[in-house]
Design a protein around this nucleic acid. Sequence first.
DNA 1: ATCTTTCCCACCTAGGTGTGAACC
DNA 2: ATGGTTCACACCTAGGTGGGAAAG
Lengths: 209, 209
Amino acid sequence: VQRLEKFNSDGLFQLFPSNIKRQEINSKIEVRLEEIDLWNIFKVLETEMIITRTGRRLFPTFAVTITGLEPNINYMLLLDIVPVGDNQYIYEDSKWHIAGKAMPHSFKRYYVHSNGVQMGLQWMKDCVQFNKVKITNHSREHIILNSMHPYQISLHIVETSDIGSITSAKYNTFTFDETVFMAVTSYKNPDVTHAKICYNPFAMALRGI
Amino acid sequence: VQRLEKFNSDGLFQLFPSNIKRQEINSKIEVRLEEIDLWNIFKVLETEMIITRTGRRLFPTFAVTITGLEPNINYMLLLDIVPVGDNQYIYEDSKWHIAGKAMPHSFKRYYVHSNGVQMGLQWMKDCVQFNKVKITNHSREHIILNSMHPYQISLHIVETSDIGSITSAKYNTFTFDETVFMAVTSYKNPDVTHAKICYNPFAMALRGI
DNA sequence: ATCTTTCCCACCTAGGTGTGAACC
DNA sequence: ATGGTTCACACCTAGGTGGGAAAG
């Protein structure tokens, strides 16, 4: 038996149990990552994302353009943040080093795009933004990650017209190499800090310094 | 044939054609208006709501607490703003007077609550806020009203687990006398202006004046 | 003239940044 | 001592108010 539980009003769900094999959608769906140049600037530096108690947004923002959906079939979009490898790390001598086995990834949470169930036509019309997703090390309200562990964003496109059948529906999964990042509670690499300040409008205050 | 068209990413839909009779939900659903004291303060003064080209929020905000839904059945919530009576008005000598027949209410638009389809249990858990709804006299992006015409908020609770079947699903409708208001492009009654400034946090700047 | 509509504005609310000191 | 975590803070972005002048 499988169960999907809603965790906040902004799209966070948790799946019990977490690992289920479902059937693929038989269709040529393509997903293009938006702002790929910006993602690559951070990838070169080895991206870090801050996690806080109260939840922190991702920057760069995860956004995609989708093609190849059936215009008149209903879909949902689920954002997923999955562990990369089996190790945790430390930052020493300006480099990331393995520091032993990873802590268990306890929570299998999905962020369901707030548009809910929509027809393919609607999803393909504009780029799909996941700008309100937040990551945390504690809060029940957001996606929970372990600090000093690497992760990667993946996207599930689920063919369903009923949110209740999400656990039995067909789906395709797309992962993005550019979105690999280290979860941290404070930035370790000063070059990452500088790039965040340089490109994130909310850090504008610190640009002159 | 009936058709539901999505108009923006924040829950606005338009129904073609607009008048359909559907079956009622056979259940003792009760809906309580939140902030009823605040609504009544404005009701005494004869509530005015500003409409602008770019869309203006409602104040007081429309929010409800719902009881009596089936916990494990899926529902959607649709906000509706319906004309009251058949006349348009003018404000003269500190009073509203009939100024002829109403203009036609051309657009039958619904604001679908952004939580989309949820089970009764979820809808009843917390009070349901419609704080992002906007009204306008022109914009395709929001609920279109005629200035100097009276309206009333109503709520449709639709029993459906599929947004696509919204036009054929069972539903119950709830109206709220406290929410009757006059759509205006600028406030006519100075007492209404004062009450808006007094109670709306976004008008805080004008409280000292 | 009179009344309604439009638009720019100052001034708020609301909330997203990294900082740097303190804590663990 | 070392290095990760937390928190109040100043400083932004983003956007919701009615005012008041101008336009219709």
